[in-house]
Each structure stands twice: as structure tokens, then as C-alpha cells.
């Protein structure tokens, strides 16, 4: 297993894609922090003051937006193999396909965690400097800010795993990335507002992620953080197993 993990790690570090996606994730996280702090107290903004625990947690949850990038990275890690046919040497050297896919899932989760740590650190730095300048005390422990950031890591890593599953299912790189983003940006928000099916909404991956991190989303009753975490991990497991099974059964392109 160690050789496969090394090989998969090298695949990530020897192309530029990972760095570009990381920069994107950092930019989005920073934007979330800046927007929430700058708009706080502005007329029409219903958010509680910056000193409130809920607001501080919500700002900290900005790092979790990196999941939009980690799901794409997961998709690209696996679909690149099909697109450029590196799947051939990969599975020639290790024909036990289950092991290859497990190595890929682990590396995808690791990349997700790295993205999460960097984005959380960036978020924490901006918060500490800006709120410090405003004279607001951050309750890192008391207000659950640190816990919110740790749960960001779980969300981001899990979405990288989901990305691998989506990539195996769809195979075509562009189609897979587009379907994931359309789902997260269009389909899930639609489900949230359509009366008949909106009961299912809290159990969807995006909503579950919101429940964990405390990022405010809509007015529907949410799951609590632990429930959200379990639901999201369930999605991760589902996609991981689906990807694993398809990879073992289908012919390699």
C-alpha cells in the first residue's frame, strides 16, 4: 500500500493543477471572512454583532468553502487518469484495482486536509488581525471557533472523497466537474425551496456540510453538527464504495 500512496502523492505534486486549486480555495475563504466582517453592522445585515459566538463561528466557517475546490480536485485526480490514459500504466503496475482506488481516496482526503489547514490558517489570521484591530475578543475555545475550523477539515476532506466517487461514476472530466458544481450551486438550493422534497434537504451533502460548520444557510431546520457530520461521512462512504465497485468491474479505458 505504501508504494501506491507514494505514487498517488507524486501524481498530485508533479502537476500544477493542485496549486491553482489551492489558490482558488484560499481566495474564496478570504473573501468569505472579509465579506462577513466588513458587512457586519451594515443596515439590512441581520447577523449578530462580531462579538457573538454564532457570528464568530460563521466567519470561521469561511474556510469550509474550500470544499468546492476539494470536490473538483477529487474529480480531477481520478478523471485525469482516464483522460490522459495514465490509468493504463497505473493498473498495469498494480492490477489489484481496489488497492489503487483506496490509495487514491486516501491521497484525495489528504489533499483535502492540507487545503483545509491552509484555508483555516488563513481564515484565523485574517480574523485575529482584523477583529483584534476592532478590539473584538475572539473566543477561540469558548465560542467554538476552533471547533468550527476543525470541522471544516472534515468537510473539505470528505468532499475530496466524494469527488473521486463522482469521477469514477461520470468518467468524463468536464462532465463530472460540471455535474458536481451544478448540483451544489443549482440543484441543492432548488431542493431547499421546493415544498414536497424540501424535507430531504438537511440530509443532502451541501446542507450536511453547513450543519457541521455552522455556516448559515437558509431558514429550514438544520441537523445539529454531529448529525450533519455523520450524514456527510455517510455520503463520503457511499461515493467511495460506489467508486471502488465500479473501478473493479468496468474495463479500464
Amino acid at each position: 500500500m505504501i508504494p501506491l500512496l507514494r505514487a498517488e502523492w507524486r501524481k498530485v505534486t508533479t502537476v500544477k493543477l493542485g496549486w491553482g486549486m489551492l489558490l482558488g480555495a484560499m481566495a474564496l475563504a478570504a473573501l468569505g471572512v472579509v465579506a462577513q466582517i466588513a458587512s457586519n453592522g451594515a443596515s439590512g445585515n441581520i447577523a449578530l454583532p462580531l462579538s457573538a459566538a454564532a457570528t464568530q463561528k460563521s466567519i470561521a466557517a469561511s474556510a469550509s468553502s474550500a470544499y468546492l475546490f476539494s470536490v473538483v480536485v477529487g474529480i480531477i485526480l481520478i478523471t485525469t487518469e482516464f483522460r490522459h490514459f495514465t490509468s493504463r500504466p497505473t493498473f498495469l503496475i498494480e492490477p489489484r484495482r481496489g488497492r489503487v482506488i483506496v490509495a487514491k481516496l486516501i491521497i484525495a482526503a489528504l489533499v483535502g486536509i492540507i487545503y483545509g489547514v491552509i484555508c483555516a490558517a488563513l481564515t484565523a489570521a485574517i480574523m485575529a488581525i482584523w477583529l483584534g484591530a476592532l478590539g473584538v475578543t475572539i473566543g477561540w475555545i469558548d465560542n467554538g471557533v476552533l471547533l468550527s475550523m476543525l470541522s471544516d477539515l472534515v468537510v473539505i476532506a470528505t468532499f475530496a472523497i466524494v469527488g473521486i466517487g463522482v469521477g469514477v461514476l461520470v468518467r468524463n472530466q468536464i462532465a463530472a466537474v460540471i455535474s458536481a458544481l451544478v448540483y451544489l450551486f443549482v440543484l441543492e438550493p432548488l431542493i431547499e425551496i421546493i415544498p414536497v422534497i424540501q424535507k430531504a434537504y438537511p440530509y443532502l451533502p451541501g446542507a450536511a456540510a453547513g450543519a457541521i460548520t455552522g455556516a448559515s444557510r437558509g431558514n429550514l431546520p438544520h441537523l445539529d453538527a454531529l448529525q450533519g457530520g455523520l450524514v456527510l461521512l455517510g455520503w463520503g462512504l457511499l461515493f467511495a464504495v460506489a467508486g471502488w465497485m465500479l473501478m473493479i468491474r468496468r474495463d479500464i479505458p
Binding site: K11, T14, V15, L17, T80, H84, F85, T86, S87, R88
Partner: peptide, 11 residues
């Protein structure tokens, strides 16, 4: 199997 099994951005 055909000379195409490379990531174009990798050395």
C-alpha cells in the same frame, strides 16, 4: 498501449 498514456503537464 498506444503512445498517449501521459499527463501533458508532467515531465
Amino acid at each position: 498501449l498506444e503512445a498517449t498514456s501521459f499527463h501533458p503537464g508532467r515531465s
